[in-house]
Simulated assay, not measured.
Amino acid sequence: MNHIQFIGVSPNDLIEKIKEQLIPAIKKELSEEFQPKQPTEYLTRSQVCEMLKIDLSTLHRWRKEGALKSYGIGNRVYFKRSEIDHLMNENEL
C-alpha cells in the first residue's frame, strides 16, 4: 500500500492543486469515454421512400427480402433513420 505524506502543504494549497490539475484531467477523460446517446429517430414508410427516392412497392419488396428492417408499432410500420443512413452510405458509388 502506498502512503502519501503532505509535508509543508496547507489544506488550501492542496485543494487548489486538485482543482487546477486533477479535476480538469478527470473531466477530459470522462467526456471522451461517455458521450451522450442520441435518441433513435423513426421514419414512416413515406419518409423513407422520399429519402431513397423509391416507390412504396420497392420499399415493401426490400422489407420482404430483408434488405431493410422495419419496426411495427400497432398498425404502423417504422424504420430507424440510422439504419437508412447506413444503407445509403454503404451503397454509395
Rank of each mutant, 00 (worst) to 15 (best):
M1V: 02
N2H: 03
H3T: 12
H3W: 00
H3N: 10
I4A: 08
Q5A: 08
F6V: 01
F6E: 07
V9N: 01
S10V: 02
N12T: 12
N12H: 09
D13L: 10
D13T: 06
D13K: 13
D13S: 09
D13N: 07
L14W: 08
L14I: 01
E16P: 03
E16D: 13
E16V: 10
K17E: 09
I18L: 14
I18V: 14
I18Y: 10
Q21E: 13
L22P: 00
L22H: 06
I23H: 04
A25S: 09
A25T: 10
K28C: 02
K28S: 13
E29T: 11
S31V: 03
E32P: 01
E32W: 01
E32M: 11
E33K: 15
Q35Y: 09
Q35W: 03
P36F: 02
K37D: 04
K37Q: 15
P39N: 08
T40K: 11
T40F: 00
L43G: 13
T44H: 01
T44N: 00
T44V: 05
R45N: 07
R45C: 09
S46A: 06
Q47A: 12
Q47E: 15
V48I: 06
V48H: 05
C49K: 00
C49E: 08
M51R: 15
M51I: 13
M51K: 14
K53Y: 04
K53I: 13
K53G: 06
K53M: 11
K53F: 07
I54D: 08
D55M: 08
S57M: 03
T58A: 14
R61K: 15
R63C: 10
K64R: 13
E65F: 07
E65V: 11
G66I: 09
G66A: 04
G66F: 05
A67L: 10
L68G: 04
K69V: 03
S70I: 01
Y71T: 13
G72Y: 09
G74M: 04
G74L: 02
N75H: 14
R76N: 13
V77N: 07
V77L: 11
V77Y: 00
Y78F: 15
Y78Q: 09
F79R: 06
F79I: 04
K80F: 05
K80A: 13
K80Y: 00
R81D: 02
R81E: 05
R81N: 06
E83P: 00
I84C: 07
D85V: 07
D85L: 14
H86Q: 15
H86K: 09
H86S: 11
M88C: 05
N89D: 12
N89T: 06
N91C: 05
E92S: 13
E92H: 03
L93E: 10
L93D: 06
L93Y: 02
